[in-house]
Simulated scan of single mutants.
Amino acid sequence: MTTGPTNSLVDVAGLRVGHAHRVGGGFRTGTTVVLAQGEGAVAGVDVRGAAPGTRETELLDPRNLVERVHAVVLTGGSAFGLGAACGVMDRLADAGVGYPVAGGVVPIVPAAVIFDLGRGGTFRAVPDAALGAAAYDAASFAATPFAFAGPSGTAHPAASGSVGAGAGAVAGGLAGGVGTASEVLPDGATVAALAVVNAAGSVLDPRDATLAGARYGLPCEFDHLRPPAPEEAEAWKPADAPSFNTTIGVVATGLTLTKAQCGKLAAVAHDGLARAIRPAHTMTDGDTVFGLATCAAPAPTHDAFQDVLAAAADVFSRAVAHAVLAATGREGAPAYLDVFPSARRGQP
């Protein structure tokens, strides 16, 4: 197995990713949008957390009408942040992209949120339609070199860390964020994931404080890491976790899948989430994963689909690890390598 060229969700042909965030002036939050080019992507969803904040997920039931979505929005701001999807809808509608109806089009834009209220100091400093539009613009122009990572602004579409919807995320007392990973199967199919990790549960292996999701890394992916020194692991005493949390994300492939198969893809990605975060799917989590198929390649055989499902769990676990590893530390939420500096090979 190998990673795709960028080891990120954009390795799936037909998908683009945009991040926009606001940090400072009371804000520490953001929005990430996944755009499906052309006619959109077939989509499914699986919600495992008991406190989800979502939009348009009922449309993705295989029994319901709509087959394809035009974007997926992942955002901070709890239920307030669902307004970011309106900015993405407006951009798509202005471009003539959406489900055709009399008089125009209606873009199909499911969304899910994390709880990051007050992380920047102001409870109602949340993503809005303008931030959603900024994330859309970052995805639309991702092929150009304009993007930059900064306290407020956008980030590279393959970025991991404290960007986009992960700007205010925490993970078991550590800084959380956006993580992404991809895998190319032996038959050439690509499976990839993007996770926004904002977990009350621990992202560490309780035996040695390694990142639990890194156990599923591909050759050389996490070779720069090693178990931290026992005294560092023993000294780590995370602050009390926030009372509301959530890990959300997307898992995708370029193969042709049905809505039901996309739902299964999302369901198996939750296995990867639970491997990398413990506990997961609690009463105060809103854990939600969307499954996407761009249908650029033929439908898989029965056996090949089993390989896709196995890869979906693995890439989601790896995406969780990348989110925490790349996150920027701050007061009350230190970075993983700040707490465990010996985990980086070459450090004393």
Rank of each mutant, 00 (worst) to 15 (best):
V17H: 01
F305K: 02
F316V: 09
V324K: 03
I277D: 02
E56F: 07
C220E: 13
H156F: 14
A333M: 10
H270K: 08
A327T: 13
M283V: 15
A36P: 05
S160D: 06
Q347L: 05
S317P: 03
A158I: 05
Y336R: 14
G18E: 02
P62C: 04
D61K: 08
G25P: 01
S160Q: 02
G166N: 09
E183S: 06
R344D: 06
L211A: 03
A319W: 00
A280I: 11
G38R: 13
L15N: 00
G26R: 06
L131D: 01
D11N: 04
A93E: 11
V66N: 13
F244T: 14
S317K: 07
T247G: 06
G121A: 08
T258W: 04
T54E: 08
Q261K: 11
A171W: 02
A181K: 01
D11A: 03
A297C: 10
R55N: 11
R345W: 05
G76M: 09
V69H: 06
S342T: 14
D11W: 01
G104K: 03
H156S: 14
R124N: 11
T253C: 03
G188K: 13
A274H: 10
L218K: 07
P151W: 12
V184M: 04
T57I: 15
E67S: 14
A13V: 13
G332I: 15
E58T: 12
A135N: 01
V184I: 15
P52E: 07
S342N: 05
Q347E: 15
G118F: 03
F148H: 15
L309G: 01
E58D: 14
E67R: 15
A36E: 07
G172R: 01
P52G: 15
N7A: 09
A20H: 00
G103H: 14
P5E: 13
Q37F: 03
A169D: 07
P348A: 12
A165E: 00
D285H: 08
S152K: 11
P227F: 05
V69W: 03
F123V: 13
G346S: 14
L218Y: 07
D205W: 04
T54N: 15
N198D: 06
V203G: 03
V69A: 08
A312Q: 00
C295I: 07
G81K: 11
L292S: 00
A327Y: 07
D205A: 12
L257V: 05
F148V: 12
L225T: 06
G49F: 09
G201V: 10
A138L: 08
G4S: 10
V191D: 00
R207D: 13
A335L: 11
T75C: 12
E234D: 04
V33Y: 03
G103A: 10
A43Q: 09
V33K: 05
G291Y: 01
V69C: 08
D314A: 15
A274M: 11
L15V: 04
V106K: 05
G346R: 11
L325P: 04
A155E: 02
R55Q: 15
V10N: 00
A212D: 01
D285M: 10
L309N: 02
L15K: 02
A241L: 12
V324I: 14
R16G: 01
D205P: 05
F80T: 06
A143Q: 09
G329D: 07
F141N: 09
V45T: 11
A158K: 04
G177W: 02
C262R: 00
G286K: 02
T122L: 13
P298Q: 09
G172P: 03
E231R: 12
H156P: 08
G164E: 04
